[in-house]
């Protein structure tokens, strides 16, 4: 078996997600190559070469792959995939955008968001917003898979894989990058944070998210939100936790003014410890919370910040 992993990177740095995908690849077994595609990615390739278990880093450094648009990226992976039994990527918005396109070019199914490897062709994945776990077996020769990073512990560093250039350049006259508006934050990434504190519709407005930020600063936490809070315009979309937002599994998740709809639970119920602060004692969030505090958040949050 031989596995190709699409490396996740942002702002010139290797993203933490890739180390989790390498762990999934190790569970499958076989040689593991990673593909770094982008423009000016030498430093990312070097970082990827250090991931434990990686045999080779293949680098496609070309303006064609800047911004990782789906059309050139899938053409590139399609070109390389012939050498492999498995192609893996993180179930990030990049992996989700690119990999199904690769699968269809190869006329194979994609297995989305695996959380466990049973054997090289059999995987577990959540369905119905995580309310059921399916075990699926692929009957295709090439397995194209996205990996839910919370399902696999990151591999450590300490490897020293060789780095080689890939010359293939995809033409693309169909799509052009126009702009990106990225959220700026000094806080840890939602997916990687050990503590996450999220606010829901109960926060009332975007300004009140400051109440969460004070606590987040003290705990080194990332700040998340429910869809209702995002929809209401309190905070930007990249903060949404849930079935159709980000999936998180921190050591500590604090849900504030969030009712606990199944779509929200889908994104956080694998957290180690869950705290809920809600003024409605019947709120479903209390059914999954290890510690529930029935209180008005406008009283509880300032007090919590002060006592931490």
């Amino acid at each position: 078996m031989s596995i190709l992993i699409l490396t996740e990177h942002h702002d010139g740095a290797l993203a933490g997600a890739t180390a989790h995908v390498v762990a999934a690849a190790k569970a499958i077994g076989g040689d593991i190559d990673v593909l770094v595609a982008g423009e000016g990615v030498a430093a990312i390739a070097e970082a990827a070469a250090k991931l434990d278990g990686v045999s080779k880093v293949r680098v496609a450094d070309n303006a064609a792959y800047a911004h990782q648009l789906a059309e050139p990226m899938s053409a590139l992976i399609n070109e390389l995939a012939g050498d492999y039994s498995h192609v893996l990527a993180a179930a990030s918005t990049t992996g989700k955008n690119v990999l199904p396109r690769v699968a269809a070019l190869k006329d194979v199914a994609q297995i989305s968001e695996i959380i466990a490897v049973e054997s090289p062709d059999t995987f577990k994945r959540p369905i119905y917003a995580g309310n059921a776990i399916a075990t699926v077996q692929s009957e295709d020769a090439l397995k194209v898979i996205t990996v839910r990073t919370t399902g696999f512990d990151a591999v450590s560093e300490g490897g020293s894989a060789g780095v080689e250039a890939v010359d293939f350049v995809a033409d693309n006259s169909q799509s052009t990058f126009i702009k990106e508006e990225l959220a700026q934050s000094d806080r840890p990434e939602l997916g990687a944070a050990k503590v996450v504190i999220s606010g829901g519709r109960g926060m009332g407005n975007g300004d009140n998210f400051k109440l969460l930020e004070g606590i987040a600063d003290k705990l080194g936490a990332a700040v998340g939100a429910s869809r209702a809070a995002v929809d209401a315009g309190f905070v930007p979309n990249d903060m949404q936790v849930g079935q159709t937002g980000k999936i998180v599994a921190p050591e500590l998740y604090i849900a504030v003014g969030i009712s606990g709809a199944i779509q929200h639970l889908a994104g956080m119920k694998d957290s180690k410890v869950i705290v809920a602060i809600n003024k409605d004692e019947e709120a479903p969030i209390f059914q999954v919370a290890d510690y529930g505090l029935v209180a008005d958040l406008f009283d509880a949050l300032p007090e919590l910040e002060q006592k931490l």
């Binding site: 309310n131 009957e139 004692e281 209390f286 919370a289 529930g292 029935v294």
Partner: peptide, 19 residues
């Protein structure tokens, strides 16, 4: 192209306590 071998309920969380 895939076989659905099994569908299981997810591990249930134990309900916690109210503080």
């Amino acid at each position: 192209r895939t076989k659905l071998l099994k569908v299981e309920p997810p591990a249930e969380r134990q309900g916690g306590i109210k503080v």
